[in-house]
């Protein structure tokens, strides 16, 4: 059995050998960089329109061309990176947090708590996701943004005018609250399978407390599949965001989001393919990167994966 302290160092060693994972890591790091420094990187104002340069294909002044209002696509993609990154991380973090805690405890302790958690998980899972998000969006978004507007007029503090904040709290909050069940079920299943393995039985025989067994032996061993799920989850969250924007319940325009750009691009792509290809390709590359990184992490973190 590995010592947890060595685990991460060894994992990093193994990860460095995996070229695909490193490439994924590089893309993800670049995404974080762009998301953080977007306003300084963008060549144009993402809102300014030029009706004489509508839907032009990529060229020197506009590397990714312009959209149907003559706005620079590259600048909008760069600003969209912020949206995408925040969405992915926030949704996944909340979902995984809830899922791991509930799943691990339920799987390890069993009994009434397990039954309740599983009932709750089943209930949450049985809600058609898109339906719930659309309904939540339609019913709660407006009261919240009205409330924020009231706050702004009272304080004149521009933070209340940040429409992303309202989108965030609501759409992505609700997205997170419905995407935790898969993580919970996954973790619970892993824990169930691990807790009857010899080393856990042995640890129990040695008189170690449940909490220590759970934290030291069971959870780290359940990590592999979870990491795969999380890395896929990050990509999924981005795709989900674009799906919601496609249905008109995602980020509010004119805030640039890749999803909004894709759904706009889908309407004109036979005439201006770059308007679909640019955001879809960026979204695809980033999603793929998260997945490669996740797979690499999985191979690296799997304590018995050494050959």
């Amino acid at each position: 059995m590995e010592q947890p302290t060595n685990l991460w160092r060894d994992a990093w060693k193994r990860l460095r050998r995996n070229k695909l994972a490193l490439a994924g890591l590089a893309v993800v790091a670049f995404l974080v960089f762009v998301a953080a420094f977007g306003p300084w990187l963008a060549p144009h104002d993402y809102l300014s329109q030029n009706l004489d340069l509508r839907s032009v294909p990529p060229q020197a002044a506009h590397w990714f061309g312009t959209d149907d209002l003559g706005r620079d696509v590259l600048s909008r993609l760069i600003y969209g990176a912020r949206t995408a990154f925040l969405v992915a991380v926030a949704v996944t973090l909340i979902a995984v947090g809830i899922g791991v805690i509930l799943g691990a405890i339920a799987g390890f302790y069993g009994g009434t708590f397990d039954r309740f958690v599983m009932w709750f998980t089943d209930m949450t899972m049985s809600v058609p996701q898109l339906l719930l998000v659309v309904v939540i969006n339609a019913s709660l978004k407006q009261p919240i943004s009205t409330w924020m507007e009231t706050q702004y007029l009272a304080s004149l503090n521009p933070i209340w005018r940040n429409t992303m904040l309202a989108d965030f709290v609501l759409v992505f909050g609700s997205m997170a609250l419905i995407s935790w069940p898969p993580y919970a079920r996954l973790v619970r299943a892993q824990v169930l399978s691990i807790r009857s393995r010899p080393y856990v039985t042995a640890a129990r025989a040695l008189g170690l407390t449940n909490r220590i067994i759970l934290a030291r032996y069971v959870l780290p061993n359940a990590m592999g599949p979870l990491v795969v799920a999380v890395s896929a989850g990050l990509g999924t969250a981005m795709v989900l965001e674009s799906a919601f924007s496609f249905l008109g319940v995602g980020v509010t325009p004119p805030t640039p989001s890749w999803g909004n750009m894709i759904s706009d691009g889908l309407r004109v792509w036979t005439n201006s393919p770059h308007l679909l290809v640019a955001p879809a390709a960026v979204l695809a590359v980033v999603t793929v990167a998260f997945n490669f990184l996740g797979d690499g992490l999985n191979d690296a973190l799997n304590p018995k994966g050494q050959k």
């Binding site: 809102l47 300014s48 329109q49 149907d68 209002l69 005018r161 325009p253 004119p254």
Partner: peptide, 21 residues
């Protein structure tokens, strides 16, 4: 397109940024 054009005209000519559609 029309609403976004109007919003952008207001932003450039009047400095209005808070527009929702």
């Amino acid at each position: 397109a029309a609403a976004q054009y109007i919003a952008e005209q207001w932003r450039q000519n009047l400095g209005i940024t808070a527009v929702d559609m």
